[in-house]
Design a protein around this nucleic acid. Structure first.
Lengths: 333, 333
DNA sequence: CTTGGTTTCTACAACGTTGTAAGCAACGAT
DNA sequence: ATCGTTGCTTACAACGTTGTAGAAACCAAG
């Protein structure tokens, strides 16, 4: 049922290698030979065995994208762009869901079907530069946070600047009691630290005192965490007039909690997020947010990986910064 | 840098096959030999070459999941469950994004790195039973719609019954002018047809006349399409008092359009969706919807595929129905 | 009809792994 | 001492593909 080069060769009356040459578009094959071989291929519905080809070539044509969770909209959207960008390079993308835990991430980074993939685009939550240092061998591009000039290529967004800008925008709306939702003390919280730094910097710029009670932690960055954090803020009596959520799903949760508390957005409390996910364009109210250029991030990552695969392994790692902009909508116009 | 069995064998002073035996957990290896080999493996950081292993074994340990779009929340959530269920069988999941077009879907179904995957879980939009009939060879499980008892294993939700139930629920709220959003005339619209059938059946059950003007088509099932369809319905003057949207993203778009039109949900218009995506639990208002058991769907699909891979190829295809329930929230309590 | 150069094709050996079959100890039972 | 038996290990041959090197066929020019 499943045929090999050999079968095609016998049918066409040529050698195995000639069939291989036809399949691979080798120039010097006589037109009639080529036609005969192609006919045989069609008749048998021959398909190359990629395992064998990979074994021979040492390349698989597959790259992996490792993200914490697929059903976090930001990663889903990013995944779509990576798949698209990779397709232009002739790559298939194997998507790996790490769950965000350090152990699983380490496994993903070193493991994923070793020799099954040519390289890895990795969006780590838990792993640090040290963890990654041990994983030489696998060509890798990191996404997201600046892991202190780690050992691998990097595509980052300027989290500090972006957080500072959106917080400054809230200040510009006349808000003074600006809360932040999403802080994390764990080592996983690299994004959280950077975005918090931008937030505090913007407050300092505006001469507003930092108030610890306005900063709410969130164990994960899901809608439920955002809602819980918002409820907590409201319950403590420190009534904010604006909230900067460290990502959009937190913000959507916060919107919900504010709605339940009978507060109006943006009149009573302005809300801003980070990521610019599709949901935020249709939520009620629509969400003001930092919009990283996800398509650019994906494209840059794929290109870095492509270069890394052909470059001298001693080439020092590069770090590219993807642009972002503010997408201002109803929740903080 | 990258080592092979042979390198480990030399270092441990044994044959290549003995190392292979250790790697594969073969029983009859003396404890001290095993220890020596394991030490050598650790020192060299040896990892098996999966391409070679696959070539030898004829199995890859990878299955593919082909879905129309990754950033449609329903598919993202489904993908997460499939990845989890597959992991329990020791499979890695390669996620393929078809885009939903017939050509790409055909390619995905027949193509995806042939010999790179052991089987395929496929959520087709455009392909019909006829298209699939030609693709013998690749073990496949279809998700979603009943393609008229096609040639492959199937996991379905009873779309007609579910749509009928949720529409009946709207009737039970006292609504009489119940609109539907999401109808499609294209061959891709298998789900649309079934859900429309459930809708009309429920109306008939209640003795409500079917009114064509209340049925709004939607080219795709994104938020923007739902909003546009809702605006269109409102503009025609046939003022509905409830809307059944054929999926949740359409419903979220409809909520948005109703909000912009100054209508209250559910007081003026009740809204129901289909899919039970995470967003609907935090939207304002929260969304009443049909909740298919996505985890069950994923698990059944993986199990069907597992059986198919070991079974006699003549085993007739099976069709399993995954359960659903109504999740009633604020938009249609 | 040779010569030299090109084009077209082929045989062979890898790539790294595992299944098969067989070899070699060491053991207890005859 | 001899014969299985059992436990451990190994040599060899595949899996299906492509790179290398070279043979065969062709062609143009002498």
């Amino acid at each position: 049922m499943r045929h090999r080069l050999k079968d095609v060769a016998e049918r066409a009356g040529v050698s195995v290698k000639t069939v291989s040459n036809v399949v691979n578009g080798y120039q010097h094959v006589r037109a009639d030979t080529r036609a005969r071989v192609e006919a045989a291929i069609a008749e048998l519905n021959y398909r190359p065995n990629l395992s064998a080809r990979n074994l021979r070539k040492g390349r698989t044509g597959v790259i992996a994208l490792a993200v914490p969770e697929l059903d976090i909209p930001y990663f889903a959207e990013l995944a779509r762009h990576v798949v698209t960008a990779a397709a232009e390079h002739g790559w298939t993308v194997l998507i790996d869901q790490t769950g965000g835990g350090p152990e699983q991430e380490r496994k993903a980074a070193s493991g994923i079907g070793d020799h099954m993939i040519d390289g890895l685009i990795f969006s780590p939550l838990a792993l640090t530069a040290d963890d990654l240092a041990g994983l030489d061998g696998m060509p890798m591009v990191l996404l997201g946070e600046r892991v202190d000039h780690g050992p691998a290529d990097h595509v980052v967004v300027d989290n500090v600047a972006a957080a500072r800008e959106i917080t400054a925008h809230l200040v510009g709306l006349g808000r003074r009691r600006i809360a932040a939702i999403g802080s994390q003390r764990t080592p996983e919280g690299a994004s959280a630290r950077l975005r918090l730094a931008g937030y505090t910097a913007a407050l300092a710029d505006a001469g507003i005192a930092y108030d610890e009670r306005l900063v709410a932690p969130a164990p994960a960055w899901h809608r439920a965490d955002g809602a819980a954090a918002m409820r907590h803020l409201l319950s403590t009596g420190v009534r904010p007039d604006a909230v900067f959520c460290f990502n959009d799903t937190l913000a959507l949760g916060a919107l919900r909690a504010l709605h339940e508390a009978g507060l109006r957005v943006p009149d009573d409390v302005a809300v801003a997020g980070f990521d610019d996910i599709e949901d935020g364009r249709f939520s009620i109210p629509t969400l003001s947010t930092v919009a990283p250029d996800k398509e650019r991030i994906a494209r840059l990552a794929v290109e870095l990986l492509a270069n890394r695969l052909t470059a001298d392994p001693e080439t020092p790692p590069r770090e590219l910064v993807a642009p972002h902009r503010l997408a201002l909508r109803e929740s903080a116009p």
